[in-house]
């Protein structure tokens, strides 16, 4: 692909003492991470441990209740233009308009993210990465859920930005497309890009691992609450039955 022509001059993306509170519950706290250019960071953790929350926090959709996020030496604030011009985020929703064809969806997305139209031959190359070349002129309404997911992964190619935030990128992909995804991610890293991926499945690209569970207050809080309950229960018993 002609994209390999340029490489990114990206900088280290790091978080320092990040904490996030949602609906009154502390999802994680004291979370530190650092991803250098050309590196991949996997986010591991149980369901509900805060992997998606961390990705949305980095994308600037959620406020951090403590800590800061740095790109090189710049501190990123929520809604910063610099922040939103550096990263691409793909979550669980595919962002596709079902009334439009894949070509129209892709052209609109590319223009909104870069301000430039995309050439037809480049678009065909990008669609072919996930085997969608033949479907370009079909309305997205008729796509299967796997095809929609692959179409949503095309956003990473269309926006052409250095930092990729991927939430469960392998869900619903068959073996061939997983390989295609791994190749694509490796290619991005070779160009000096940064990837943060939350995933339960092995993707097949070498990377560091951040276990969100360790910064997760949930397991910790449960232990404390359990202990308190035992103590209370103990006190409510008749002195005779009390276990001291």
């Amino acid at each position: 692909m002609d994209q390999s022509a340029h490489s990114f001059d990206s900088q280290t993306l790091s978080g320092h003492g990040l904490a996030c509170r949602r609906g009154g519950r502390l999802v994680f706290s004291g979370l530190d991470f650092s991803v250098a250019p050309g590196r991949l960071l996997f986010l591991h953790g149980k369901n509900g441990s805060g992997k998606s929350t961390l990705l949305r926090l980095i994308a600037g959709f959620l406020p951090a209740s403590a800590g800061d996020l740095r790109y090189g030496t710049d501190v990123w604030d929520r809604g910063d233009a610099a922040l939103s011009e550096t990263l691409v985020y793909a979550g669980h929703d595919n962002g596709l308009k079902t009334a439009l064809t894949l070509r129209e969806n892709s052209e609109i997305y590319a223009r909104i993210m870069t301000g430039r139209p995309i050439a037809a031959d480049r678009l065909l190359d990008m669609a072919d990465v996930f085997g969608l070349g033949a479907l370009l002129d079909r309305p997205v309404r008729y796509f299967s859920s796997g095809q929609r997911h692959r179409a949503s992964l095309m956003r990473f190619l269309l926006a052409d930005r250095p930092v990729w935030l991927m939430d469960e990128p392998t869900v619903g992909l068959d073996a061939d497309n997983r390989t295609a995804l791994a190749t694509l991610m490796q290619h991005h890293l070779d160009r000096g890009g940064i990837i943060l991926a939350a995933s339960h499945d092995p993707i097949g690209v070498a990377g560091d691992v951040l276990n969100v569970d360790e910064c997760n207050s949930l397991a910790h809080a449960k232990d404390v609450a359990g202990g308190a309950f035992v103590a209370q229960y103990n006190n409510s018993l008749h002195p005779f039955w009390r276990e001291d």
């Binding site: 994308a59 600037g60 959709f61 691409v88 985020y89 669980h92 993210m113």
Partner: peptide
């Protein structure tokens, strides 16, 4: 909001 394209729009260089 429902199809997730609001996330994409929020990351456009134009700002919300």
């Amino acid at each position: 909001f429902e199809d997730g394209s609001l996330d994409d729009l929020a990351l456009s260089p134009l700002g919300l």
